[in-house]
Structures are given as structure tokens and as C-alpha cells.
Design a protein around this nucleic acid. Sequence first.
DNA 1: TTTTTAGTTCTCAAAATTATGAACTAAAGA
DNA 2: TCTTTAGTTCATAATTTTGAGAACTAAAAA
Lengths: 160, 160
Amino acid sequence: MKGTIVAELTQEQRQLIEKMGIYHEQQGFPPVTGRIMGLLYVTDRLHLSFEEIVETLHISKSATSNALQLLQQMHLIEYTTYSGDRKRYFGALLENWHEEVLNKMESILGLSKLLRQANELRGDANPTMNQKVTERIEFMEFLSREVPALMYKWLQVRKG
Amino acid sequence: MKGTIVAELTQEQRQLIEKMGIYHEQQGFPPVTGRIMGLLYVTDRLHLSFEEIVETLHISKSATSNALQLLQQMHLIEYTTYSGDRKRYFGALLENWHEEVLNKMESILGLSKLLRQANELRGDANPTMNQKVTERIEFMEFLSREVPALMYKWLQVRKG
DNA sequence: TTTTTAGTTCTCAAAATTATGAACTAAAGA
DNA sequence: TCTTTAGTTCATAATTTTGAGAACTAAAAA
């Protein structure tokens, strides 16, 4: 049986999808990819088919295919299948923000390593600079330890 | 008196500048802008002149001018002047990571507001989704409160 | 006043990114 | 087997981003 091809959305919801799209663009996503994230967050359906995404956002199959693959690689979405139905049903991985937080901390730690190397190469040529950079490095390391700890504590309290 | 036009850097330092450049590119900066940040972090000089930046990185005056303006708007660098010397001396704002952290938290709060609106528009069409999204929203709000608190506490212990 | 210096702005070209449509693949259905 | 469906890949077009070089401005120096 063939259902509706377009996910029904109010005008307000469509506007919100665009806002979320822009947010994601600002975080470095390509436009179409951001819109898809917006759609998957705004819809009341846990999963939308490939075709629904294409038709709802008025984007090409190829752009959709590429964007969905990117989002899967980033662990932001997943898809489900049903036997006897060849379609894929895509949904946002709404629980995966844990991972995102940890990744972000890794990235910060990456910069702290580069700054540490800068200090080493500077040697004692400019102690004032080294001291300021060290403060920043130590804060970054502190954050990378404390934010995950904070998160786990929060999850504990939440989940019981 | 005219000093050297090029900041002297070891090969290792030049490589590190590139790595920092790439890091900044990945954070959304244009390439030249990232290299300038790299240079200002790696050099042992608190301040470099416009001309030194141009000559050291082999980039055009126009690209340099634009990049420096962008970085100033982002509060990542500043410049000093000396009376009787028309040049501007640019340096990284090594202390401003406080602001950066607060801005990041604001940005996260921005997404949480969009997600909250998504939940409102969804109404009770999908309680499961609303509940999952709510958990994320609440964590984001929690982080936006706790990370600044953590930072101020850290600064207290450090400086106090 | 003319020239030099320091940097900005403008115009344009090169490069990179993004998305389209067509061709294609693989599996299912008729 | 032939056709349809679901999605991917390829070639290309459109757009955007980025940076170079020249022209320009404003202030200082000669």
C-alpha cells in the first residue's frame, strides 16, 4: 500500500525546519543536509522514507542520498527497514547527543595538544605567552575531563 | 628603525602553524584566517606587524586585511600601536577563551530553543519523540548553566 | 608640496562546494 | 523474462567562497 509521499507539515513547522537548517549550516553542514536534520527533528514521525524526504523538501534524489550518507557517517541519523518493504526509513538518532558531547571534548583536546606543542617550540623565548597559553590549555583539559563527568552524573540522576 | 620583515620560524613551527590552520578551517574559518591564528599562537612575539604577517605567510595584503578584520570582530585578536610608529601590531587575545566558552553555550541554548519549539508544534502527536527531545533540551540547558559555573569556579581557584 | 608608508577597498579570477539530472545497479514484481 | 522500484553514482552546472592585484585613501615624512 502506498501512503502519502509528502510529510504533512504546518507552515510554522516548515519555517522551523529552515531555522534549524540555518543553525546546522552555521555548524558546518551543507544546506540540504541541514534541512534534512531540521525535517527529522520537526516531524512527528520517528522515521521518514527516502521518497518522503525528497518530496517534502523538494530536493533531488542525489543530494538526498549524499546528505543521508554523510549524516549516517556522523552518527546523527539511522534507518530502519521492514521485511516486504524495500524502502528505508530514516530518523534522527535522538539519543546520540552523548557521543556528540564526547566528540566535541576530543576536538577541544586536539587543540590543546597543538597549543602545548606551540609552547614547547617556543621554549623560554616568551614566558608570558607560555604562561597565558598554559592557562588556556589547562582549562581545556579541565573541561574535557569535567564535562563528560557532569554528563554521566546528570544521566545517573535522570535515569535513576 | 626597520627590523626584519619576516618572523623567523623553525620548520617545525611552520608545520605547526599549518596544523593549527587546518584545525581552524575545520571550525569554519577561511584558510588564510586560520593560518594567521596559527602564526599568532606559534610565534614567540606577543605582537606581529601587518607586514610581518603578510611576508611570513606569503599572503596578499588584501587577504590579510580582511582576515584580520574578521578576527577582530570575533574578538580573537587585537592590535596595539606605538606613538611615532604608524604600524599596527597584531596579537592573539590569549585571555578571551572565557568569552568563547560563553558564546558556545549561548549557541547551544539557541538550538535548545529551536528544539523546544519543535516539541510545541508537534503537540501530542508523538509523545515518544517529545520525551527524547525534551531530555536533550534539558541536558543542553543544564550544560549552559553548569559549564560557565565550572569555569568561574576554576578561575577562582586558579587566580584566587 | 610631493613622496612614502600602511592599510583598505574594489574587481575579478580561481577554486571549492553544492546540488541537479541522467545513467546506472540491484533487487523485487509481474 | 521484462518491468518497476529504490537508491547510488557520475558528469556537469550553478553558486559560493576565497584570495590576488590594482587602485585608492589617509596620514606622515621629506
